Every structure is written in C-alpha cells, then in structure tokens.
Amino acid sequence: MLLASSPFKEIRLDRVSRAFGNVNALRDVSLSIAKGEFIALLGPSGCGKSTALNCIAGLLATTAGGIYVDSRRIDQLKPEDRGFGMVFQNYALFPHMTVRQNIGFGLKMRRTPRTEIDKRVEEALGLVRLETQGHKLPGQLSGGQQQRVAIARAIVIEPPLVLMDEPLSNLDAKLRLEMRAEIRRIHNQLGATTIYVTHDQDEALSLADRVVVLRDGAIRQVGAPPELYESPDHLDVAEFMGFRNRLTGKVTAREGSFATIAVGGTTLSGRLRADLAVGADAVIAARPDDVAGGPGGANSIGATVETIEYRGREFVGTARTADGLELIFHAPSRAALGSAISLTVDPGRALVFAA
C-alpha cells in the first residue's frame, strides 16, 4: 500500500521572496505547514501562488528567505533531491509511453528494482482507479484520466509532500467536481502533505484544511475555509470569497459588532470587519445569494432590474440603483426587465470594511 515516506513535522517558508527583475512576485512570505495538512494557495492570476509552489519544488530559486523541512534547509537543493511529487496543470505526460511507463518513470530514474516498480505502479493505478488503463497511451485517455495518471506518477514515489499547480483547470465542470473528490480521497489515503494552487474559491474551500489567500505576492489571510468564507479580514479577500456586491458610503451608527452606513439614498447594516467610527468612509459587501429581490422592508435598497437569468431553483439578476450602483441578487420568481425592485440585504451576512 502506497504511503508517504520520509515523515516530517513541518514545512516552513521563512520570509521567502522571489523577484523577476524589478517585479516582486513573492514578498516576505512566511508560512508553516504541518505534516498531513492540505493547504490551498488561492488568489487571482499574478498573485504569486504558482511562484511560491515552484520555489518549494525547486523549479525556481528564491531571491531571499529560506524553505525548511523541520530544521533542514532545502531551498538550495536540486528539485530531484527534495523528493517531492509534482502535478502540473498540463499533465506533462510522455505521449510515447504507456500509462504504466509514465507512472513508473520516476521510480526508474531512481534505479528502483523492476519488481518494486511493477508493484508500486499497480498500487498507484488502483489508488487513482485506472487499473484497466495501464496498457494505453495518454492520447487514448480522456482529460480526467490523464490527470489521474499525472497524480499517480506524482504519488508513486511515495513523497512526503505533493505539489499541485491548478491540476483541474483544463477539465470541464463535471470532471472538475469528480476529480476534486478524488484528490481529497487520495490525499487522505496517502497520508502525504498537499499544497494545491488554484484561483477557484470553491476548489479551495472544498479541498483544503487551510486556505492561504495571496495578493501581489504577499499573504493576505490564512485560515480554515469556514473562517475565510464567513469572516474575511480584508475587502480584497472578501471579493475573492464571493462578496461581489460592494457599496460605498459613510458610517451613520454603530451598535456592538454591527454598523449602519448611508448608501444609495438609504441605510444598510452589516457586521463590522474594521474599527470604524461614525462618519468614516466604509464599504458594505454582500454575496449575491444574500441579496434577495422581493417586497422590501428593513435593510433594503431600491433598484431597477437590468438582467435576469433562470438558474433552476431560482433566478439571478442584476439591478442598478438611482445612483448608478450595480447589485447582483437572487429572486424566487422572474422579475421583469426595467421594473422597480426592492433588494433586501441580510445584515447578519453583509460585512462592513474601511473604504
């Protein structure tokens, strides 16, 4: 049975930086990852998440700082001497080799005995559920199957750490969901530590034990998925967690952990995520599914419907206030284009940040 080898207590990034000329792709990144954790590096394109992964893998040299496995510094080691498994976005399979040959390639390079290679390749095929596909070439497989081969090749060497660089981005929506569950299952069964790069918040939230949100090469927030989803510390983190509605105004009142801000000719309340005094400029942010179109009432704002889409159980639309502010909302029935609508914001789920 395949298991992670060379156990460690922690992998640690200590003020790691990486510059490309005058551009700082990583800036003083410090992070500790415990054995067996599943960590997701999340952020938009260009935030530094793939750069961080490649520095850990040894594919990129660090400009400053160090990377440690327990007390041993590894950032000066060659990639092959680190013993990590890597899964690339584009699979990177050898087209002229069979599935078995692709999976066993790393073991062959390590001069592993033939009988041991055969045994571990079969175990890896079983782990990724490709037992009947070992004789085929990559071109004869679907995208999802090719990604499973890439994962099997990474784990067959029994690495203590598996690095995954947006492995599902080339798959369709159905396959992404299926492979997401498979990746978590394999992680649990293998017992390795996993660092997973993605720009998809759903992937990060569903897979990871902790999510690391990066922006402009720096860590903005680290936390468990429920913590980041419910209580992001910064507006940019909230935006990446799905708070697509953002309205700017001034704080008119505070009561405990809630604040009321004047916006769009009305007032809206939400949970404070910054220490704001009355009169301060603020932004209230809410997810579309926490903004409901309906008869109105408390914590509501008037708008005109601009688009409406049927999404199965409900409708999702965009509406614009008299001040030109756009809001995305959910509604139980179709609203007529151009009609006036009252949008109610759930005050317990809306967040108030400094502007």
Rank of each mutant, 00 (worst) to 15 (best):
K78E: 13
G144P: 02
E314I: 00
E131L: 00
T98H: 08
A350N: 09
G294P: 08
G46M: 07
V251Q: 07
L268S: 06
L343E: 00
I183M: 11
S142H: 05
G302L: 10
E255H: 13
R18Q: 08
A4N: 03
N188F: 01
F353W: 10
C47Y: 05
E80H: 14
I308E: 14
G294N: 11
L177G: 15
L235I: 15
L2P: 14
S71M: 03
R27W: 05
S142K: 04
V305L: 10
P288Q: 09
R153K: 09
A204I: 10
P225R: 07
E227I: 08
V283I: 15
G85I: 01
A154H: 13
Q89G: 05
H330N: 12
V87Q: 06
D70I: 03
A224C: 02
V69A: 08
G36H: 06
E239R: 15
G139N: 09
T321V: 06
M179K: 06
I261P: 05
M164D: 01
L13T: 02
A173E: 05
G256M: 10
R254I: 00
G317R: 13
F94I: 00
F20W: 12
H330S: 14
V87Y: 06
S342I: 00
I301H: 09
A336Q: 12
P138W: 10
R129W: 00
T198N: 09
Q133W: 04
R184Y: 00
E326A: 13
S231A: 12
D28A: 10
Q140M: 11
R313E: 10
Y310E: 09
E314Y: 13
T198A: 08
R320H: 09
N170I: 08
N54Y: 14
V162Q: 09
P347Y: 09
P167L: 05
T51D: 11
Q147S: 11
P288S: 12
F243T: 06
P159C: 04
H187L: 01
V212D: 02
A340S: 15
I301D: 00
A354G: 10
L163W: 07
K78V: 02
V283Y: 10
Q146D: 04
Q201N: 14
D281A: 15
G302S: 14
D323V: 01
C55D: 00
G85H: 13
S257R: 15
S231I: 00
P138S: 12
N24G: 01
L163H: 09
L327M: 12
V283N: 13
A61E: 15
P44W: 10
V212Q: 11
A336V: 12
G58M: 03
A331L: 02
A154I: 01
E80T: 11
A262M: 01
S342Y: 11
M179F: 01
Q89A: 07
V237Y: 11
R12V: 00
I157G: 03
V69C: 05
G317I: 05
L161F: 05
Q140C: 01
F94M: 02
